[in-house]
């Protein structure tokens, strides 16, 4: 069975549910081999084996962090040329878009981004993408491979399939091309202590209808009660009622949680594009014509300022 290369861009990523979903998807196409950027932390290697990584290629060099996507892409390209894998899989992140683009150019391969499903086909992997703001599903197959696929978080549910992983260190040479771009400083974004937005199973999100930073604080209280991540629309982050990191939609994060609870969100197409894949949607909006009510499993025509504080109280009462 052919190998399927799976990029894990850091040891911390090795224990993320998106990585486990990626490995689960890779098993459908062949034998998953992880390309781990960073030290071969035994915990990380063990976690990867738990989800079926029979091989872990370790690319450990401080220069990879300093020189970014080109250097990482070159590691993948060298391995892909040596191993002729059935596919190269990456999580849909900003870094991976750069890496995927470079790998596809160097290998002359088809690239399919933001997949919501992958499965084996008669000619190779079949990839499903959700397009036109989530209104259409498109199936594609690569004519020239190995196909480079980026997979959306939560697209494939992680299923364990333990194997003992074999670790192989690969040589890292940062070439001239990679050295033209250098990271001179890195400021980690403040952690909210909440689940990662892209991977959370519950997301509580607020839109323009929350009215103010105080109105948004109730969204955060409800999120904490539900152990959820917090999301927002672009107007809310533009008004700085919350951090830009919370933005969901075309130019923000794409989420597909089990539950998406939206308040004060009308559901403009740019926002729907980022949350349409949610399994269950609950929406609260003053305007009975708000498009989000048409896609909600439960819609409430009501005022955020009235309904949400009451909902917080009600949930506090029930969960005490």
């Amino acid at each position: 069975m052919s190998e399927v290369l799976v990029l894990v861009p850091g040891a911390a990523d090795a224990v993320r549910s998106s990585t486990f979903g990626l490995l689960t998807a890779a098993r459908r196409l062949g034998e998953p081999s992880v390309v781990l950027v960073g030290p071969d932390d035994p915990e990380a290697v063990r976690a990867l084996g738990e989800y079926g990584a029979a091989k872990v290629y370790v690319a450990d060099s401080p220069e990879l962090a300093e020189y970014g996507s080109v250097a990482t892409a070159e590691v993948l390209v060298d391995l892909a040329r040596r191993l002729a894998p059935a596919a190269v899989l990456l999580a849909s992140t900003r870094l991976s878009k750069d890496v995927a683009g470079i790998v596809a150019v160097r290998l002359g391969s088809g690239v399919l981004t933001d997949a919501v499903d992958v499965r084996p086909g008669s000619r190779g992997p079949v990839v499903t993408q959700s397009v036109f703001a989530g209104t259409h599903l498109v199936d594609s197959e690569a004519v020239r491979g190995p196909v480079v696929i980026t997979l959306r978080p939560n697209a494939v549910d992680p299923e364990p399939a333990p194997v003992p992983p074999a670790v192989e260190r690969v040589e890292v040479t940062v070439g001239e091309a990679a050295r033209r771009v250098r990271v001179v400083s890195r400021t980690a974004k403040a952690s909210s202590g909440r689940p990662d937005l892209s991977e959370a199973s519950v997301v509580v999100a607020g839109g323009r209808g929350v009215g103010s930073a105080e109105g948004f604080a109730v969204v955060e209280r409800l999120a904490d009660l539900l152990g959820a991540a917090v999301g927002a629309t672009r107007p809310v982050t533009d008004e700085k009622w919350c951090s830009h990191e919370y933005q969901i939609g075309q130019t923000g994060r794409t989420v597909a949680p089990q539950l998406y609870l939206a308040t004060g969100i009308s559901g403009a197409i740019q926002h729907r594009a980022g949350m349409q894949g949610s399994r269950t949607i609950v929406a609260i909006n003053k305007d009975p014509k708000a498009p989000i009510l048409a896609i909600a499993d439960l819609g409430v025509v009501g005022d955020h300022h009235v309904v949400l504080p009451r909902l917080v109280e009600e949930i506090e009462r029930r969960t005490q």
Binding site: G134, H136, L137, D139, S140, E141, V143, D297
Partner: peptide, 19 residues
């Protein structure tokens, strides 16, 4: 390098309850 084999409308979300 990749061919589209099928393009279909996404299944409509089941109409929920609006109260």
């Amino acid at each position: 390098c990749a061919v589209v084999t099928q393009a279909v409308p996404a299944p409509e979300r089941q109409a929920g309850t609006v109260l």
